[in-house]
Design a protein around this nucleic acid. Structure first.
Lengths: 239, 239
DNA sequence: GATGATTTGTACGTATGTATA
DNA sequence: ATATACATACGTACAAATCAT
């Protein structure tokens, strides 16, 4: 076979020719979720266009998408800001996320395939090492993978979609650090209980344990949320 | 007081100066949900713009919003179509909707206020009359109100939002008629059981009954879904 | 409260990529 | 396979509304 191997390959298109608007929406979403664009930050079209070297048109379309996805709020002739839900709404979202993840956990107990179960267990064991080593960064990354494994294992793509979406919208309020100190060890133990319940096929227990796990997590988030939500009404415009 | 009564009123702005893009998005959403724009129908910018007497710009922005909200699918340089989820995804959405409404029912049993309980019971009694009279249209409208009462009664705005959103995305597949014939009477009886469970504060039972109710409803939808999903790949463009 | 500056909303023209003959 | 037609993506100009003075 020849060099580039494109001989019989069905010549896949470049993974979808990303339009500028699409690219921008993704980029802005990342910045919001990562907490670099704080809730309440104004998103003005011209500065954004300039900052990314495009015209206002793709910026506007990106903002429209983010608006529908809940990451930004737009008031008709008054511009867009990074979404800053009311404290009450935030608690509601958290409660729903807990139920969605409990649902996913129960689904895993029922529907996970043997390979998936092995991988979940393996991942959890790898995370144990990170806890012992205090590798906070690695643990955070693995934690994302852990929850995604649960989404995938339930074999319900729509559930995974809205659960992950809810998690994304809450992400700006976890901001940088979470699970600091002892909470990390405790959190991992809670994961362990969930994994065990799933592996033995006990969906009820898995769901309950997940709910409890997230209830404790919420308490840990409380301070961060209060901090961000307590900010003055007017934030600084986008860089 | 004078004619328009704007004397001491805190001069509310005209219910939000609706932008064309916003208006269009809402209008298209209605047409999709009502089943007048069938899943798979191409949504071309120029015809839409002409049909609504605007330029392509607001059309494009409306499509971007609907894209994120899941009512239309867009492939980068290939235009938009009314969303047509895979059968599998449709089943997933239905399953999740059942769980979300079960959650809402359980929430109602816990959180509904006396007034709300009375109203729910009253609504259910009014629907009984409609069943006896065979007033299908009135029942359909009341049914929407019934489910919205459950969303509201749970006192979780986010739950209400995503449950209703899921319901909207499934709406095109119920199309015109549903609950025809005997299913209507049966459906009403199921509602009755749910209402009773809520009123006596039994969230567990309310949730279980709601799940069962929707499982039976799904079966009734099956034919319609198959019909719409079975259509040829290429649908007719928008009028 | 009126006026000016800034920003959003809309229209339109052009380029580029996709689909079709 | 090449070329033609067409729809989308983007840029730019203008209009209208918001806000700041």
């Amino acid at each position: 076979m020849s060099a580039s191997g494109s001989a019989t390959a069905p010549r896949r298109r470049p993974p979808a020719p990303p339009t500028r608007a699409e690219f921008l929406a993704q980029k802005l979403a990342e910045e919001i979720v990562a907490g670099r664009l704080m809730p309440g930050t104004p998103l003005e079209e011209i500065p954004l266009a300039a900052a990314h070297g495009v015209s206002r048109t793709p910026v506007r379309e990106a903002l429209r998408r983010l608006e529908s996805s809940g990451l930004v709020e737009t008031r008709p002739r008054r511009g867009a800001v990074v979404a800053r839900p009311e404290p009450r709404r935030l608690r509601e979202m958290f409660a729903v996320m807990a139920e969605l993840e409990a649902l996913a956990a129960a689904g895993c107990a029922r529907a996970m395939r043997p390979a998936e179960r092995r991988e979940l267990e393996a991942l959890h064991k790898r995370m144990a090492a990170m806890v012992r080593g205090g590798e906070l960064l690695a643990y955070r990354a693995a934690n994302v993978a852990f929850h995604q494994a649960l989404y995938a294992g339930a074999h319900n793509g729509y559930l995974a979609e809205i659960a992950q979406d809810t998690r994304r919208r809450l992400a700006p309020f976890r901001a940088a650090q979470l699970e600091a100190g002892g909470r990390l060890r405790q959190s991992h133990e809670e994961h362990g209980a969930i994994v065990t319940a799933i592996l033995r096929g006990d969906g009820e227990a898995a769901a309950r344990l997940m709910r409890e796990h997230l209830a404790l997590t919420e308490a840990a988030w409380g301070r961060m949320m209060a901090l961000i939500l307590g900010e003055p009404e007017q934030n600084q415009p986008v860089s």
